[in-house]
Nucleic acid binder design. Structure first.
Length: 597
RNA sequence: GCACCCGUAGUUCAAUGGAUAGAAUAUCGGAUUCCGGUUCCGACGAUGUGGGUUCGAUUCCCGCCGGGUGUACCA
């Protein structure tokens, strides 16, 4: 039951009858008719002129006449320049609404056991500092993309690669050892990730102080860096860790676990989950093995100092280091190892990496390297690249301490939502628990929607104040529309007006209502398109349109007071399905919608 | 230098190569105030620049200009 498909087939038939030519669906440009013209769908005839060998108006006229005569769904048509505007018969809209109503999962494709398997990697934190605003965009995109793929009938494994090894975590460890006085998350009352982050910052401060001291004694910056006692202690620690020194590994485990507990709290609040988590401490050796295998096979080469390189000049890129002269791994090595382990673990068809656009080059190289190493999935990997998030005040810079912490931001959003609803006193009659629940939905919904509605690849500005506005293109507005429809349905029930299961086709509905049904039916196509193009933001803009259109409709037509029973049934049913579609759309964004707010 | 990405109303965002480039917000004017924070109508206002491809370009190609990112034996 997809009107566009029906029209497409009808047009194919028309072209065959009229011009004796076979065309396929991709040659047909069918779009929604612009507001200012009469009709529902518009056929652009320009692409068909070569076949019809007539001018645009004639071609449109002929196809229009054919369709209105032969197709049961087309009731009228008009031609403006080369555009053929088709009006769909009113009872078709009622039947379509009935169909949507009968299929609660309308728009979603069920996931078959043998459906293509997608693995989506996102979040990918370092264990030396808490999550920040940039991670929020990453997490939201990864989660939403996964939901959209599932809605398109794909099997999805959500994965996270935790960067838990390396010099950065050693810095936190050393600072804690030296100046920590056995502080723990419990004893300090700090979240584990924040605690570790604080020690990372502390190390940096002490290190800088040390450098300043050395430079004051007349050393150059480079000499100071070389002679730093702190840095050499950190390096020693990393060596100990790599050698498996028991004490170091124990400390590392303990502190990492603090961080994980902190991350888990943040993820839970954001509504983010993973099916499988990988740790770089488990994968970097596999990467080294793969690189060495590549070296043996002559895919890579070794320099005199024993470092291993890939020559990518044939691909128009530079040379890329894969193993340092001391034999240790670099970032790329680890990603190769992680990829290998993943494909050993699962029969992945498509691997999607949700990683910021500053790593575009990295993934270009990774794709080539995996391919060279003989992994057939290499070529097809998808780097879901997204832009930076800035604030109205400007860019976030960790050096200047202008990084927005994820936990702080979420709290701020929820607090604002609470204040707003308290001011308006709308939740006075609901329980404190429910109020808190709704407050969270609204605060986080505002944040999520604002970030997800923007084209991922673009840099964006996140404005907290604007995001939580109850008017305009915002999450709360959409949530509010949903709550309002639910309220109408509650009232209908109170007044013992039932929303009937079947609709009568024997009523006259307005153009506005036809338009709403059309918009409602579009959901299916939007979900498909979003899944095929990995274009998350499509969903948000669609749901907002739907909510906005409903609000106009709601003020124009009576629902509970409508005397014509069949018409009232239609409107209530329409409202109900709009609420359901809003809910489904927001689910793809990981946004909850309250029943009341 | 080279590579990739981005330039759209004052601002934040839209627009599978299609009609007069849409919203939101801000500002200004009017109507309505009837289930829930109203809503509706109007005004104002934009494709960085120069070429090319074609029936038709915000979109594709080339050259400039502006911004971002990358190009590390960091991750």
């Amino acid at each position: 039951m997809n009107i566009e498909n029906i029209l497409q087939e009808a047009v194919i038939e028309a072209v065959k009858e009229l011009y004796n030519a076979d065309i396929n669906a991709s040659q047909i440009t069918l779009q929604k008719t612009k507001r200012e013209f009469k009709g529902h769908f518009t056929l652009v005839t320009f692409p068909l002129l070569k076949i019809s060998k007539k001018n645009p108006e004639q071609t449109a006229q002929e196809i229009g006449e054919y369709l209105s005569k032969k197709s049961p769904v087309v009731s009228e048509f008009n031609v403006i320049k080369g555009f053929l505007n088709l009006t769909i018969a009113p009872e078709v809209w009622i039947k379509l609404l009935q169909y949507i109503n009968d299929n609660p999962e309308f728009g979603f494709t069920p996931v078959a056991d043998d459906a293509p398997l997608f693995m989506v990697e996102y979040s990918s934190p370092n264990t030396n500092k808490p999550l920040h605003l940039g991670h929020i965009r990453n997490n939201l995109l990864g989660h939403s993309l996964s939901e959209i793929l599932k809605a398109n009938g794909k099997r999805v494994i959500k994965t996270n690669i935790v960067n838990d090894r390396g010099i950065h975590i050693c810095k936190s460890m050393l600072a804690w050892q030296k100046w920590g006085n056995s502080e723990t998350p419990e004893s300090s009352g700090k979240k584990g990730d924040h605690l570790i982050g604080d020690y990372y910052v502390l190390f940096d401060q002490k290190y800088k102080a040390e450098l300043a001291d050395l430079q004051a004694k007349g050393l150059s910056k480079e000499e100071a860096e070389e002679q730093s006692a702190l840095m050499s202690e950190v390096r020693e620690m990393l060596r100990q860790w790599e050698a498996g020194d028991k004490e170091t590994v124990e400390l590392w485990k303990m502190m990492n676990n603090w961080v994980y507990a902190g991350f888990d709290e943040t993820y839970e609040k954001l509504g983010i989950t993973f099916d499988k988590i990988y740790y770089e401490s488990d994968t970097y050796l596999a990467g080294r093995d793969e690189v060495l295998r590549g070296l043996e096979d002559g895919i890579f080469y070794q320099k005199d100092d024993n470092s291993v390189w890939a020559d990518l000049t044939a691909e128009g890129l530079d040379e890329k280091i894969l193993l340092r002269s001391d034999g240790t791994s670099v970032y790329m090595t680890q990603d190769i190892g992680t990829a290998k382990l993943r494909f050993d673990d699962y029969p992945i068809d498509t691997m999607i990496y949700v990683v910021g656009n500053e790593q575009n080059y990295h993934f270009q190289v990774l794709s080539i390297l995996l391919d060279k190493l003989g992994f057939e999935f290499g070529k097809g990997l998808v780097h879901f690249s997204y832009g930076m998030v800035e604030l109205p005040e400007g860019k976030m810079k960790s050096r200047e301490g202008t990084v927005v912490d994820a936990d702080d931001l979420m709290k701020e959003m929820i607090d604002t939502a609470r204040e707003t609803s308290q001011e308006l006193g709308k939740l006075d009659d609901v329980s404190p628990e429910e109020t808190e629940n709704i407050t969270q939905m609204v605060g986080l919904g505002a944040l999520k929607y604002f970030i997800l509605k923007v084209d991922p690849k673009k840099n964006m500005t996140f404005n907290p104040k604007e995001s939580i506005d109850f008017n305009g293109n915002t999450g709360p507005f959409i949530q509010y529309t949903h709550a309002r429809i639910k309220s109408i349905l509650r009232r209908a029930k109170e007044q013992e007006i039932a929303v009937p299961e079947t609709l009568s086709t024997d009523i006259t509905i307005s153009e506005k209502e036809e338009g709403l049904v059309q918009l409602l039916a579009e959901f299916e196509n939007i979900v498909k398109q979003a899944g095929n193009e990995y274009n998350v933001s499509l969903i948000g803009n669609y749901v907002y349109d739907l909510a906005k259109e409903f609000n106009q409709f709601y003020h124009e037509y009576p629902m509970l007071r409508e005397e014509n029973e069949a018409l009232r049934a239609f409107r209530l049913s329409l409202s109900k399905n709009i609420a359901l579609t809003i809910k489904k759309g927001m689910k793809l964004f990981g946004i909850d919608v309250p029943e009341r707010m």
